[in-house]
Simulated assay, not measured.
Amino acid sequence: MSERATTVEGVRRTNLGEVLRLVHHGGPRSRAVITAETGLNRSTVSDLVARLAAAGLVREHDPDPTRRVGRPSPIVAPSPDVVAIGVNPEIDAIEIGAVSLGGAVRLRERVPASTPDVAEVVEVVARVVAAWRADALKDCRIVGAGVAVPGLVRAEDGLVRFAPHLDWHDADIAGPLAEALGLAVVVGNDASYGARAERLFGAAREHGDVVYLNGGASGIGGGLVLHGQLIGGEGGYAGGWGQTAASLTDAADRRVDGGVLEDEVNRARLVRAAGLTAPDDAELERALTASDDARVEAARQRRILAATLGNAVNVLNPSIIVLGGFLGSLREIDREGFDDEVRARALAASAERLELASAALGADRLLIGAADAALQRLLSDPLG
C-alpha cells in the first residue's frame, strides 16, 4: 500500500472515531450538527455515518416531524446493541453492568460477597455475563470489559498494586478475567472511573475543571479533571483523597487519633449509627435522618467533609465538585447548607463561581466509567 493510501486510510479511521465518539458521549445528533461539530464536509460525514451504520455501531432515524424546518437531516444515534461490561468489586458485593454505547446501563446485577479475592470476582463475573449472553444480550456485540477497583491501579498495565480493604496486593485481575470472558479487559481506580463517568455523562458534563470524590464501603477515592483532561499522575495513582489528613474544625469531632479523612468520614460509621447491616446507598441515604444517632453522626461527618472540600477549592479552584456514594448522601441531607459551608471554608475568590453536585449517575457511575474505559479501543478505531 502506498504512503498516501495509508495516510488517507488513517485519516478516515480517525474521522470515524471522532463521529462515533460524538454520538457516544454527546448523544444522538443530526448529520448537520455532526458536520458543524467536526468541521468536515457533508459528503464526508454522510460516508462516515454510512460506514458506522454498516458496521452496526450507529443507527439513523428521521428527525421529529413536529420540529422540521427546511430539509430534514437524519438523526444519528449510537447502537444500544453494542455494549461493554463494567465491574466493581467491593468488600460487600460485586456489581456487574452491561453498558451500551451512549452510556446507558442496559443490565446490572449486584452479587453479595465478603471481601472477594480475584478468583471469586472472575468466577462471579464470568457466570453473570454467560447468563446474559445466553439471554438478554444474545443479539448484542460485547466489545470489552472494565473493572473499577477501590485501590491503587498501575496505569501502564492495570496491575492492582494495593487495594487495602479487599486485601489485594500486586493483583492481576485483567489477565484472568480476559481469559474467562474472551474479551479485552481494562482496570482502573474506581473513583477515577466515577469521575470519568460524571464528566462525560453526568453532573460535570459542562465543566472542564472538576473535583470528584467517591465514598464507598472501602473508603474515599477521587478523580480530578483539569482543562477537560482526567489527571492520573505519574503512575496513575492520583486521587487518594481518603488518605489525606482529616480537616477538623472542632477537636471533639475526632474519632481516630491521627486518622485520615476516610477514618473520620466513613460509611461503616454511618451504617452503624443508622442501625443497618448491609444497605445499598439509597437505603443508607433514607436512614441518615431517621434517628438521633444517625443525625448526629451525619452532621459530624458533614463538618469534616465540608472543611476538606474547602481546602480542595483553595488548591485547585474547580468549577464544580461532584460527590458520589455516601458522600453525596451526606450532602443531600441539606444541600444548600452544605454547599454554603464549603464556600465559607474556601477563599471567596476561589469559591465565587463554584458549583457543588451529587453524582447524577447514582449507583451506576462506576459501572459506566469502567465500561467507557473499555470502549476506548473501539472509539479509537471503530472498524479495526
Rank of each mutant, 00 (worst) to 15 (best):
G337C: 14
L323C: 00
N317K: 10
D334H: 05
A312I: 10
V313R: 10
V322H: 05
R345N: 06
L323K: 10
V342M: 07
E336R: 14
I321W: 01
L316E: 08
G325E: 06
V313E: 05
R343Y: 01
D334S: 11
A344L: 13
R343C: 12
L323Y: 06
G325N: 11
E336Q: 12
A312P: 09
I321D: 01
P318M: 00
A349R: 14
I333Y: 08
A344Y: 04
A346P: 02
A344K: 09
N317P: 01
V315I: 12
E332K: 12
F338N: 14
N314P: 00
E332T: 07
P318H: 00
G324H: 09
V315F: 02
P318L: 00
N317W: 04
G337H: 12
L323V: 11
R345S: 00
G324Q: 09
N311L: 13
E341V: 06
L309R: 09
P318S: 00
N317R: 15
V313H: 06
A349Q: 08
N311E: 03
F338Q: 07
D340R: 15
D339V: 01
L347P: 07
S319G: 08
G328C: 01
L330I: 02
A351M: 07
S350D: 13
A346H: 02
V315C: 05
I321Y: 04
I320P: 05
P318G: 00
R345Q: 14
S329P: 15
A351S: 15
A351T: 05
V313Y: 06
D340W: 00
E336I: 09
F326H: 05
D334T: 14
I320D: 09
N311W: 01
V315Q: 11
A346W: 00
R343H: 11
A346I: 01
V322G: 07
L347F: 11
F326N: 13
A312F: 04
A346K: 00
R345F: 00
L347V: 11
V342Q: 07
R343N: 10
G324V: 08
G328A: 04
E336N: 08
F326A: 08
V315N: 10
R331Q: 12
G337I: 11
A344N: 05
A344G: 04
E332F: 05
E332A: 15
V313K: 08
G328H: 13
G325H: 10
F338A: 08
D339M: 00
R331D: 00
E336V: 06
